[in-house]
Design a protein around this nucleic acid. Structure first.
Lengths: 210, 210
DNA sequence: AATTAAATTAAACAAATGATTAAATTAGAA
DNA sequence: TTCTAATTTAATCATTTGTTTAATTTAATT
């Protein structure tokens, strides 16, 4: 039963890959099971044979997407070795590399997350993962004289994520406004790898909460 | 036929309002015509009676949403009277006020815009609206000694929009990560009205492209 | 009051959609 | 090779969904 297992994995993975592409591009409701079957070039019934239902398949894709989305930061947050500045640079590198390859992930995750019924968030093990992180500790130390609080820490995180993630989500509008083709847009994003850490640093130097 | 017209407007507007709420909250594909009819408390057939089809109704909502989304900036961009700093402050005020009332708009617009078939963007009259704006001119003047180019102008716009819009789109995740309730989140956003212009200014002072 | 147009309703249709079934095929084990 | 379990297929089912129809009600006009 070895060759069978292998082939099983192949079709199963083909279905998953097709589902990922379509779910991320069009969302759960707009993606039909027949679309997935066509995209994966498999018989429609195999979707339910391997994954039980459209919804179960979706949850798998969703969980993996959320994981990818958070992977960029969570891992870096608790590195005892690196400085705050190094962490910012690492997060910028990781996010821009990741989003250059899979730009649809954040819009997909956030779109589906807004649906009330989705308790994906509550299932995530990120309760005080950030507030208690080495990253947060280092931020408080650095901001000691300025007087840091939870608000300023959150603003800092929001600014970092905003400047890294939002441009990919708004690519159609940004490209239209700036009259940019795909290559120009990609160049712009690549530049942000180095620029965002510089800007974040200059924001930190600002005594915002005075 | 006057009272009829009035009542007509009432039901018509009730349908539109219901459609707006549901489309913005769940997207086009996840919103069913029966949902809209229920939400508006009207007979299902009235949707087609007044708007012809679900798609036509959607296009109306979509166009109005895009307009609202861009209204925050376009109007301010070409004001000859205000300085660049004043423009940034005005944009911050407008966006945060607007998004505090209608936080679903950007996620809705960007989600539906990603669908290839939507030629909404191409229909928008924003071709060189930004690149040729007073805003852009003032930016170039201010950055004259640093050496400004199209890239740095686009980064500037991206940073401004990112820091204003992204936090509302990512509210579920931000709230979860920061352990924030709705009121704490709203306070944080209100703080950003004044903070974002300060941060933007401190970014401008940075010689990023040197 | 009678007439006419507009607005609303209940019912139904056809197509789309998620899922299931039973038969057929494939491939590994005996 | 024969047998068995896993895999694949075509066909079908029951709902859902967008839309339409024809009948009814409402309201303005004569």
């Amino acid at each position: 039963m070895l060759k069978a297992k292998e082939k099983d994995q192949n079709t199963e993975q083909r279905i998953k890959a097709a589902a990922q592409r379509l779910f991320q591009r069009k969302g759960f409701a707009a993606t039909k099971t027949r679309d997935i079957a066509d995209e994966a070039q498999i018989n429609l019934a195999l979707l339910n044979y391997y994954f039980g239902s459209k919804e179960k398949l979706f949850k798998i894709i969703m969980m993996e997407s959320i994981f990818k989305f958070l992977q960029g930061i969570i891992f870096v947050f608790n590195d005892e070795q690196s400085s705050l500045e190094e962490k910012v640079q690492q997060i910028a590198n990781r996010y821009i590399d990741f989003l250059s390859k899979e730009p649809e992930v954040p819009l997909f995750v956030l779109s589906e997350l807004r649906n009330e019924s989705s308790d994906f968030i509550h299932q995530l093990p990120i309760d005080n993962l950030f507030l208690d992180s080495v990253f947060a500790k280092q931020y408080k130390e650095k901001m000691a004289e300025t007087g840091s609080n939870k608000s300023s820490l959150m603003h800092f995180l929001i600014n970092l994520l905003s400047m890294l993630v939002f441009p990919f989500m708004s690519k159609p509008i940004i490209s239209k406004i700036g009259n940019l083709n795909n290559k120009e847009f990609d160049n712009l994003m690549e530049e942000r790898k180095n620029l965002v850490p510089i800007w974040i640093e200059s924001i930190l130097k600002t005594h915002d909460i005075s």
